[in-house]
């Protein structure tokens, strides 16, 4: 926000003199798409269905490359989240293999050299697809897929930016723009060359609630899920904020009346 306002003013100044911002340089990221999400605004909440569908998209598509380190399985059952029961969250956790500590013999790998794992419990966090950054880069042509736990708070444009990236593939690059070998064209990404291949296609997932799985739907749902992953307390925060604001406004009113009454004899 702090950057976009001055840059916006600078752009406006440039526009005023007739120089077009778009032609100011190939590779400048387009502004994020203007879509609306249920969690925006002072009374926004997370759409439970979108959270659950988005979790499915993360699980079946994104988690192949992207970790979600900071989210614990027990959070799936928390208030203000996807709304799984504790038993469901436990079952989800148990479906994952997390790194296990040394066994009784002190070994950390099995006979084949594969690191030991155990089923996840509620206290565990989502395990990463790669054991470390170097392995992640090797599997992804040298690019490091970022952890997604707080991705929307770590990018200008937040949810809109991530949504634009996910739905911004598939267009033809403009004449004169060369796409680097091994990368993909996405005009919402700074430089227009993104290392991530288009992750979403129609029906990449089959939604259990029957929602039609278009790319826009999948993107909308996973963006909602990732918004929650980064701000699991958002609903509680806005709810509390409403109460606090009401209290403070009422308190200000009472104090104002006291102030006027008190000072009446001084004026």
């Amino acid at each position: 926000m702090r950057i976009s306002l001055p840059l916006g003013l600078a752009l406006a100044a440039t526009l005023a003199t007739g120089a077009l911002a778009a032609e100011a340089g190939l590779g400048h990221a387009l502004p994020p798409k203007d879509v609306s999400f249920s969690f925006e605004g002072p009374f926004g909440t997370y759409d439970r269905g979108a959270l659950q569908r988005g979790f499915q998209v993360y699980k079946e598509v994104c988690s192949a490359c992207h970790s979600l380190n900071r989210v614990a399985f027990h959070a799936l059952a928390d208030e203000g989240g996807p709304g799984f029961t504790e038993a469901q969250a436990k079952a989800i956790a148990a479906g994952y293999k997390v790194p296990a500590g040394p066994n009784d013999k002190g070994e950390t790998t099995d006979a084949n050299g594969t690191p030991l794992t155990r089923p996840g419990i509620l206290a565990d966090h989502f395990p990463a697809p790669f054991p470390n950054d170097e392995a992640a880069r090797t599997a992804n042509n040298g690019a490091l897929p970022p952890d997604l736990s707080i991705i929307e708070k770590a990018r200008n444009g937040g949810a809109h930016y991530v949504y634009s990236i996910l739905t911004g593939f598939g267009e033809k690059p403009p004449a004169g723009f060369k796409v680097i070998d091994g990368k993909y064209y996405n005009p919402y990404f700074e430089g227009w060359n993104i290392s991530m291949p288009p992750p979403l296609n129609a029906n990449s997932v089959t939604y259990s609630d029957g929602t039609k799985a278009t790319v826009e739907q999948e993107a909308h749902d996973v963006v909602t899920f990732l918004a929650w992953a980064g701000e699991p307390k958002m609903e509680e925060r806005k709810r509390m904020g409403f109460g606090v604001m009401l209290f403070l406004i009422a308190f200000a009113g009472v104090l104002f009346l006291s102030y006027r009454k008190l000072w009446a004899d001084q004026h």
Partner: peptide, 20 residues
């Protein structure tokens, strides 16, 4: 006085606010 009621209300709201 009505003035006192206002002060009591102010003080009470302040105490409640601090408690919360």
């Amino acid at each position: 006085t009505r003035r006192d009621f206002l002060y009591i209300a102010s003080g009470a709201m302040g105490a409640v606010g601090v408690g919360l």
